[in-house]
Design a protein around this nucleic acid. Structure first.
Lengths: 93, 93
DNA sequence: TAAACATTTAGACAATTATCTAAATATATA
DNA sequence: TATATATTTAGATAATTGTCTAAATGTTTA
């Protein structure tokens, strides 16, 4: 889960995930959405993949990236436990 | 929200939040839970406070820290939109 | 008021990170 | 097979970050 939090701490990577929420995209299509070099985007995609936040599917010379919500579900659960359970001073029974 | 994600990307800071889930604690009590110097813990607490993840309450010479779920609610919502809305290939109607 | 205690600030340093360019790899096509 | 295209790898560099020690600040109490 540490990998996922680290991966999400960068705004570029979060924006990549938001792009993939609408459509699966190739590495090239993703890089076109940023003023950042392709190798840098590739690096970000690698971090997202390592954190199990995206999936790769090689189709010929293209690599199609898609969302993988596995790690996000853990984060959702972790976060929810704070927002939901945050009443320690209200019900001390 | 960027500050919050950045703040959450460090394991020590996430552990601090988990400690505060159970009890409000002073800076000193928090630092006792780690093999890290007090100034370093103070630095982490500052980052958490800046990200609106904790609240400070100065009581005499002690500073009591408590959870602030404000920023976590934003993160929860952001994350939920992926886990919940991640069905773009299933219902294209 | 002086001493003890709690916390933060200041400044330094090593490790990590985001970025770049150049080169390598892999695939498709003329 | 040669060339063009898509992507990643390698290596360098500047900025950021987590940590430390020493010092400063603020508060309590003897």
């Amino acid at each position: 889960m540490n990998k996922a939090f680290k991966a999400l701490s960068d705004p570029t990577r979060r924006k990549i995930l938001e792009l993939l929420k609408d459509n699966d995209l190739t590495a090239g299509e993703i890089s076109e959405c940023f003023n950042i070099s392709k190798p840098s985007i590739s690096h970000h995609l690698n971090i997202l993949s390592n954190a199990e936040l995206v999936l790769r599917d090689k189709q010929g010379q293209h690599v199609i990236y898609s969302l993988n919500t596995t790690a996000l579900q853990d984060i959702l659960k972790w976060t929810f436990d704070f927002v939901e359970g945050g009443n320690k001073n209200e019900n001390k029974n």
